[in-house]
Amino acid sequence: MRRIINLRPSTGSAVLLAALPFLLLLIAYLLGSSVRLAANPEDKLLPAFSKIGAAVQQYAIDPDPRTGEILLWADTAASLARLGWGLAISAALGLALGIVTGIVPYARAGLSAFIAAVSLIPPLAILPILFIVFGLGELSKVVLIVIGIAPFLVRDLALRAGEIPAEQIIKAQTLGASSWQLTLRVVLPQLLPRLLDALRLSLGSAWLFLIAAEAIAAENGLGYRIFLIRRYLAMDVILPYVLWITLIAFAMDYLLRRVTRAAFPWYAGNGK
């Protein structure tokens, strides 16, 4: 008998194995749901699939009788806009500050302690301040995401900029590069794929901050909806919403990975 660490599944069985935990979860749900519903037909905790299907119909297909909008789409659009702005602003900040603190010694001396301190502020603790300063509108939600993930991006990219071998930086100078040209042609292009990697890592936090902000003050959005219907214990709506959010998060991660691979072929070849 070989050691278990040396036993590898074939491609087919790997797919089956990957599906197995999902299937088990589904079966557990179905069992639990039918047991609870048999005991109490009014039970709300684990609704039957038919009930969930009706909720999906109501939220994702039929327009809302009051506003005429399809709620799921309206919520998704609102949330993605906030998330998109938050990620875009954080990425721009991360690149700009990361590069500057990574390669300019004076900027590093002046900024790195400050950035380290800012990154230690628990973003949710200052959410009330954001609401007071920026109001209850879109701005405060976007700012929360930015405060939540930009410090991480800045520090990660500064590290990555510092990891560019000193030989390359010297070489570029012997080819006549000014500091600006060096940034533009040597540092920035090598940091872009690393930025996408860092963004992927911060997607989870970005969603966390988005949903927290929406839960507290919003008129739409995926997080708003979940917390609104929580009052009615409407698990038949909450569950599909959570699934949907998970699916979007997965798609974003997948997309970022594909873009990194397609746009920066040299990066994958680097083996890092």
Partner: peptide, 8 residues
């Protein structure tokens, strides 16, 4: 000796 070209 090493790292003197631009990989990107």
């Amino acid at each position: 000796q090493r790292y003197s070209v631009f990989p990107h």
